[in-house]
């Protein structure tokens, strides 16, 4: 026969079960951490051992990771990197404006804008289809060759224009995807409260589109920040990669390139973490 349990006992039993489950969860988490740590050590150790025991390691160590050369070259490269940062910032702003204008031109269907719309389509097709490095070459060497009065001839300006045109095409597509992702009901509601099409775009559709494309835009920034190094190929003096290249060539030691790589990473990694945080923060708000 089963006697009815006194309520106090029931409470104790419930509390025990709760503690039991919590303990089991903790044990499972500990086990997981242990496995992760062990496998990281094993795989990481194997990789390091593989590199350190490779026949060419002593030579690689001296030509790529020379502390002495690093100390000698780093200040110059760091100074040169400031040019990269400035080019990046100016091009980025230009890209954001150009991309938005192209996206809006392709989105708004006013008949008067028809020729502009064609131009915008041709522009995105063309400049997205050409490798950025080729574009830098074509504009960097082609525009000065025209020998036209008034056109810029400075490599850094031409390089900046080439990067702007290339990334403007990508970014315009990102904006356009954002504009199209705003539900049609938003436009209906904006018109229903008496806004004009233009007001609906400006006050209702565009703000929501821009918010949504923040993460993909940041992704393109990271790519652009690296591609600034491309302007080195048209002879932009004092650019970080170029300076590192010259130094590496002068004494056949590649450590300066590693120094330059570290500077690029110093910008792109924080940007990537910022992107992660942004995406997590906005994950919940999609409406």
């Amino acid at each position: 026969m089963i006697a009815p349990r006194p309520p106090l006992d029931a409470a104790v039993v419930v509390a025990d079960r709760r503690a039991e489950r919590a303990a089991a969860r903790r044990a499972k988490a500990r086990r997981g951490q242990l496995i992760a740590a062990t496998s990281t050590l094993v795989i990481g150790g194997a990789l390091v051992a593989l590199i350190l025991t490779s026949p060419g390691w002593p030579e690689v160590r001296d030509t790529f990771l020379s502390v002495e050369v690093f100390r000698e070259s780093f200040p110059d490269i760091l100074r040169a990197f400031w040019l990269d940062v400035r080019v990046f910032l100016i091009v980025e702003v230009a890209v954001l404006i150009l991309g938005l204008l192209v996206a809006l031109t392709r989105t708004v269907d006013a008949p008067a804008l028809f020729p502009l719309r064609i131009l915008a389509v041709v522009y995105t097709d063309l400049f997205r289809g050409i490798p950025t490095i080729l574009l830098v070459y074509l504009i960097g060497f082609g525009v000065p060759a025209l020998a036209l009065e008034g056109l810029p001839t400075e490599p850094v300006v031409l390089g900046g224009i080439a990067l702007t045109l290339s990334y403007g095409a990508y970014v315009s597509e990102v904006y356009r995807a954002g504009l199209r992702s705003v539900h049609r009901g938003q436009r209906d509601a904006a018109l229903a409260i008496g806004l004009t099409e233009r007001q609906a775009l400006r006050h209702v559709i565009l703000p929501q589109a821009v918010r949504r494309v923040g993460p993909p835009l940041l992704n393109d920034f990271i790519a652009l920040q690296k591609d600034v190094a491309l302007i080195a190929i048209i002879g932009v003096a004092g650019e970080a990669f170029r300076v590192a290249q010259i130094q590496a060539a002068s004494d056949f030691n590649y450590t300066p390139l590693i120094a330059a790589a570290m500077l690029y990473l110093a910008i792109t990694i924080p940007l990537a973490r910022l992107l992660d945080r942004w995406e997590r923060g906005h994950g919940g708000r999609t409406r």
Binding site: D188, A192, V204, P207, Q208
Partner: peptide, 13 residues
């Protein structure tokens, strides 16, 4: 006129 939609269509931003 004032139109109200089935799905509210409020401006989320």
């Amino acid at each position: 006129l004032g139109l109200v939609f089935q799905a509210y269509n409020l401006f989320g931003h």
